[in-house]
Amino acid sequence: MALHLTKSRPPTADLHPEPAPPRGRLLSRIDTRWSPYLFIAPFFVIFAVFGIYPLVYTAWVSMHDWEIAGKGEFVGLANYTALFADADFWNALVNTLGMLVLATVPQLVIALALAALLNQSLRGATFLRMGVLIPIVTSVAAVGIVFSQIYDRDVGMANGLIGLFGIEPIDWRADKWSSWIAISSMVNWRWTGYNAIIYLAAMQSIPRELYEAARIDGAGWLRQFRSITVPMIRPAVIFTLIVSTIAGMQLFTEPLMFGQGAYAISGGSLRQFQTVAMYMFEKAFRDFDYGYGSAVAWMIFLVIMLLTAVNFLITRKRG
């Protein structure tokens, strides 16, 4: 944003060759000086109202014993100290990070391979490229319902398939590993194509000469991919990595739809697949512990900031 701001500020001196009448000049000076700020104001006003204000207000709520019946006592950081000792919160954090890895790594690897394939001169290239985007057009809730049925214990397709290989049916919701795989598969299914398209766009901006030169030097397809394609699309990879991390930390609807019954927000009988976002919702809107829920929300925010900073440091070091 700052970049655009400085660029769009007009060089004032050169634009006023002859003096205007005093009143007009004042208006014009105000105009040139403040208009740019006014133009960018909508973003900042909206950001302040829907971004900063809720953030600060949440912090305020998190320092209270705030229940459904209204604001209670000011308790300072008591909610946070309780949170640090709360096994359910750490369990949710581990679940979230576990599913983040399971959903991000295969997703980006497959997306990379998919993008490399789509980058070839194929028959009906546009059709295929649009095709991989279809999953993100679907609604998350619908995906959740369909996948929940696929992973149903008694009549699910997944159990039917592994049954063909003589494997006993799995109660997908009963264990951490099985529920994580099931939920990650929903995320992967939905977002792989999106990432593939981003990689594809980046790949198409790589100058052809590089490949020609490599070919003259005798580099094979794989070598070209490793030494030219991947380094050249680095910015795109970093972008998808950061965005996937943020989205993964906010994972909510998929595991909620995967859960069962009226208390699905707990993410399984022993919280096998409860994410931090679900834990926040449970505390605030199910147990009506609004202050505690806000503390969880702030912790999610801090963890995301932390992960983003780690991402940033790694990329700066290596880039």
């Binding site: 655009h4 660029k7 769009s8 007009p10 634009l15 105009d31 208009s35 006014l38 133009f39 104001a41 909508p42 006003v45």
Partner: peptide
């Protein structure tokens, strides 16, 4: 997406009014 630069100077006050109204 990059913000498109607006250069039509004389439209600016008008735009500002419209904007304030919208807000």
């Amino acid at each position: 997406r990059p913000v498109r630069r607006m250069s039509a100077r004389r439209l600016r006050p008008l735009a500002a009014v419209a904007l304030a109204g919208a807000l």
